[in-house]
């Protein structure tokens, strides 16, 4: 990891102080016609925090970020970024943020360097700092050798890095990254995260969306959004311990394929899957004890090495929360009829 230029680390000390919220949403709402894409979302992100926004496709993640960045006007509620109101002071906000959109949005017909120069000008980086910032971005993104390439000729991963580079070029205190690592190979993703950590250590607040569960684990705090509503938020550990309505067990046994079939067929099993050579089973709370599983399997002649209750994975939590939400809504619809 290479060091950031000084401008980035100036308020590193502030991590010691109690952190004030820098992104605040209160009942934020966005409707498109009579479709509600973001429904009364309330949350806070503190300075220097890495906040992960998770949710299935179409949940409203991008829409939320776009409202915070002043690209879309909210239709209800309020929000503030860096202390500025998103409806009334969007231009003030824009001086304090970097944004990387989900869809690549730099100029494909310009070269790497020309894109960087363009944004240097737009962000009014002082002339004496420009060269230094440019080199920093090129190095950070590993694009030094490709500085003269047309952006259109770069592969997906390189484009993402350049986009991130241009988003942090002006050293903004808050950055919004909408699926920054989609289409990036695992190694580059690791580098990407090193950089994000590095920025956060320097006091930069990171608000990002992702579909990758391993990335969610790297976040300080997470928010889960589903059909426009924020249905859970907290640190990854909080989510795993507080929100999981089911028990999660891990079973090590012989003939895992056969065991999987047996267990899936049992009543009260939410979900079971093979996880390496082990079975990962989500069962209704208190419905089945580890001992019962052992008995069921051994009755069928499958030797069982171990059955233990484990901490759910984030994926378990999300699937569980979403299913619970679907059941609840289904019930409400029934009731309404």
């Amino acid at each position: 990891m290479m060091p950031a230029p000084e401008s980035y680390v100036t308020d590193g000390h502030s991590t010691q102080e109690p952190r004030q919220p820098v992104v605040v949403l209160r009942d934020l709402e966005k409707r498109f016609g009579d479709f509600t894409a973001v429904n009364k979302v309330t949350l806070e992100v503190r300075k220097g925090e890495i906040f992960g926004f998770l949710g299935p496709n179409g949940a409203g993640k991008s829409t939320t970020i776009r409202m915070l960045c002043g690209i879309l006007q909210p239709t209800g509620g309020m929000g503030s970024v860096a202390g500025f109101d998103i409806t009334r002071q969007p231009e003030e906000i824009k001086k304090n943020i970097g944004y990387m959109s989900q869809r690549f949005s730099l100029y494909e017909d310009l070269t790497v360097e020309e894109n960087i120069d363009f944004y240097s000008g737009i962000y009014q980086i002082p002339a004496d700092k420009r060269a230094e910032r440019k080199e920093w971005v090129l190095r950070m993104a590993g694009l030094e050798e490709r500085r003269l390439s047309r952006t259109a000729t770069l592969s997906g991963g390189w484009k993402q890095r350049l986009a991130l580079g241009c988003a942090v070029l002006h050293a903004p205190p808050i950055i919004f990254l909408d699926e920054p690592t989609s289409g990036v190979d695992p190694l580059s993703r690791r580098n990407f995260w090193d950089l994000i950590y590095h920025l956060a250590e320097g006091g930069v607040t990171v608000f990002l969306t992702t579909h990758y569960m391993d990335e969610a684990e790297y976040c300080d705090r997470l928010g889960l959004i589903y059909r426009g509503e924020l249905i859970a938020q907290g640190t990854p550990d909080e989510l795993k311990t507080r929100y999981m309505a089911e028990d999660v067990m891990e079973i090590a046994c012989a003939k895992p394929q056969e065991a999987l079939r047996l267990i899936t067929a049992l009543p009260g099993i939410g979900y079971a899957s093979l996880f390496g050579s082990k079975l990962h089973v989500v069962a209704e709370k208190g419905e089945r004890t580890p001992e019962e599983f052992r008995q069921v399997l051994e009755r069928e002649g499958i030797p069982t090495e171990s059955v233990e209750r484990v901490l759910p994975s984030l994926e378990d939590v999300f699937v569980s929360l979403i299913e619970a939400r679907d059941r609840q809504e289904g019930a409400q619809r029934e009731f309404a009829r």
Binding site: I71, K94, Y99, S101, S105
Partner: peptide
Amino acid sequence: EIGTMEQMIVTPI
């Protein structure tokens, strides 16, 4: 159409 406007909008231009 090509999406670059979105990036322009978030700059202080």
